[in-house]
């Protein structure tokens, strides 16, 4: 139901891994003396960090280090924020054709709650959650349905496809471009103190 930052994490891990791989291979080649012909500092007997103290003693070095640290902090915070799971819920739905006559608005959770309540009326379903994504013209529906141990998952999916989705489409007025159904089996049961028989 929630969007995690898995893709972002994989992309950055790949970048960091490649950078470390290149540095490691370069270090290995320099240590073995294979790069000595490119630059004297890369000679096996050379001391490449010999001039480092001259750079570190520069007056602008503390300011540069503060800037670099600030950039790293910002990058870290940005990465942490991206780790927060997001629902990517649809924005407010608009049903009006001509705004000059007035607007017709409905929040997406209003529709999701109605669909979830409809699913909960199915046999063996103990709880349901729905999430509407996309837009009013191209809606996507994600359902998470908890069923008890006696349920046949395929029957539940069929019932959702044949009874629940047509009602949802009728209410919304447009077909779903994509529907995802997640079935979760639970030992919990749901009891009701009343039943509709007619």
């Amino acid at each position: 139901m929630r969007i995690l930052a898995g893709g972002l994490n994989r992309a950055w891990l790949t970048v960091i891994g490649l950078v470390l791989l290149v540095l490691g291979v370069g270090w290995l080649l320099a240590a073995s003396g294979l790069l000595a012909s490119l630059h004297p500092a890369l000679d096996q007997e050379a001391a490449p960090m010999r001039g480092a103290s001259g750079v570190l003693d520069q007056p602008w070095m503390p300011a540069a280090m503060i800037v670099v640290a600030a950039l790293l902090i910002l990058a870290g915070l940005s990465w942490l924020v991206r780790q927060i799971p997001r629902k990517r819920q649809a924005p407010t739905l608009r049903f009006h054709e001509d705004a000059r006559q007035g607007v017709t608005l409905m929040e997406a959770p209003v529709f999701s709650d109605a669909v979830a309540h409809d699913v909960e009326e199915l046999e063996h379903v103990t709880a349901a959650r729905a999430l509407l994504r996309g837009s009013r013209s191209e809606p996507e529906l994600v359902l998470r349905v908890a069923v008890n141990e006696r349920a046949d998952a395929q029957e539940v999916v069929d019932a959702i496809s044949e009874r629940i989705l047509p009602r949802a489409v009728e209410a919304l007025g447009v077909p779903f471009t994509d529907v995802g159904i997640e079935i979760v089996v639970t030992r919990q049961s749901r009891k009701s103190d009343r039943v509709r028989v007619q």
């Binding site: 000059r100 006559q101 017709t104 608005l105 209003v110």
Partner: peptide, 9 residues
């Protein structure tokens, strides 16, 4: 003009 907000279904 009539603005409508659907609060629940």
């Amino acid at each position: 003009q009539i603005d409508i907000r659907v609060g629940y279904l």
